[in-house]
Design a protein around this nucleic acid. Structure first.
Lengths: 253, 253
DNA sequence: AAGTGGTCTAGACCACACC
DNA sequence: GTGTGGTCTAGACCACTTC
């Protein structure tokens, strides 16, 4: 195989096409290891950096998975787990998702990462709190040992005093609010956006920097309508997807 | 300024930090042009490729905008337009969004791109149609002349015969369905995910390949409950964001 | 024509995983 | 140690924008 500049298609795009053809023709199956970068470079008579440029775009797009020291692999078709959102503002939420996952043999749990007094303009405004009262709690959602989301919660330090100690053994913030503080939460709003994974987020999610992540933010209010928890989740877009169903009587999270 | 390998932080990350510091300290303001890649390379005593690697990640993350032949600029803070979704399945949808945008002085319109008989397993399943009856329509949503979303609609060719001609002057597919075919649509479901822009999508949206985009899919049914239009939208995540409000009585799309 | 970013090369060394 | 991907360099030429 030999590539060369033709028309105006850059070499690295031609390399991409070669790889995509091999995947689509099933010459390479999900989970298979690609030839090494050196081998591909030699085989296609291009520089290794050109191969890397081709691979890195395909990896970002989720078609390949690169593992340092091991090799580059054809990605498994994403096990898009569908989370169904109802029109309700209730929050059986995490509970429901967790149960569903477990029924499919995928043990899910939320793990506490860190907690600190910290300021954040957006959280301050949403919660209407002075800056010194703002507590930030970070958690990770693991499914089958694999990180699926990185979460940041903002809440009033005074109202949930000592919550950090509660979270060490069970990282579920919402459960802690309910069980230890008697606070029933429901949604005021939730939002969806897409963003590139920052270095920190990429590490937490086990993906490459710049990988698209689904950003879900939400404000939770207590039964009196007071803004109580402002949460930001970054979700692996190759693992989760949200669906708003209107037909049937709908469930949660 | 001189960078060198310290600890284990790669050079290109140090270059990123330098740039981010200049942006955060407001030494570089939104819209400002950065020094050229050659200049940065010389100034920081690193290779130009190293500078490029730093810049390309920041560009993907939306902090910088790179324009060939012109220069690299600090991105304007994203004018996240918020689209409010109600729990209703109704579809005042595009209408409402368009009106809101226009009130803010941003003329919005949907533009027809192409139309063809084409097969798609997912669309076939959603619409329960045989493959030969499947029509694909592509449109672009422009706000103030700038592309905000790339849309693909799937519908029954027989039911909407001649729709292509209707769309040439007004690209709004939903409006065409209502006005020319008397079909009132509402949502059965909508979904949200994130993905990397493919070369084709990147071109339509005016962003770099691999930029995170918000993927919104939905199935629309007519008043008898028949699946009628299956639509996939790719939205610029630096321009739009979806919010589900639960508090007030809610509006549309 | 001049200046910008876009692509490509050859070669080197480093960090990580596995044996 | 061996082999993988990760980082980095020096230098070249191309494509696009502006003048």
């Amino acid at each position: 195989m030999r590539l060369h500049r033709t028309g105006s298609l850059p070499l690295y795009r031609q390399v991409q096409q070669v790889l995509q053809e091999r995947i689509e023709s099933r010459a390479l199956l999900p989970g298979d290891r690609l030839p090494t970068e050196h081998e591909l470079a030699r085989e296609l008579a291009v520089n290794r950096l050109t191969v890397r440029q081709a691979i890195s775009e395909l990896a970002r797009a989720g078609q390949l998975v690169v593992r340092q020291g091991i090799g580059t692999f054809v990605a498994e078709p994403p096990a898009h787990f569908v989370v169904t959102l109802g029109p309700e503002r209730s929050m059986a939420a995490v509970e429901h998702t967790t149960r569903t996952l477990e029924q499919e043999g995928m043990p899910a749990r939320e793990v506490f990462l860190s907690s600190a007094i910290e300021d954040c303009a957006e959280a301050r405004e949403q919660l209407r709190l002075p800056r010194r009262r703002l507590r930030r709690v970070d958690t990770q959602f693991l499914v089958d040992g694999e990180p699926w989301s990185a979460n940041t919660y903002w809440l009033a330090d005074t109202r949930f005093r000592g919550i950090t100690d509660r979270l060490v053994h069970d990282g579920s913030v919402f459960r802690a609010c309910a069980e230890h503080y008697g606070t029933d939460l429901r949604y005021a709003w939730r939002s969806f956006a897409a963003a590139a994974a920052s270095p920190r987020e990429a590490e937490l999610l086990g993906v490459a920097v710049g990988t698209p992540v689904l950003v879900r933010e939400g404000l939770n209010i207590d039964s009196s309508g007071t803004p109580t928890v402002y949460v930001t989740r970054r979700l692996r877009s190759d693992r989760m997807r949200f669906v708003l169903r209107y037909e049937h009587d709908p469930i949660v999270e």
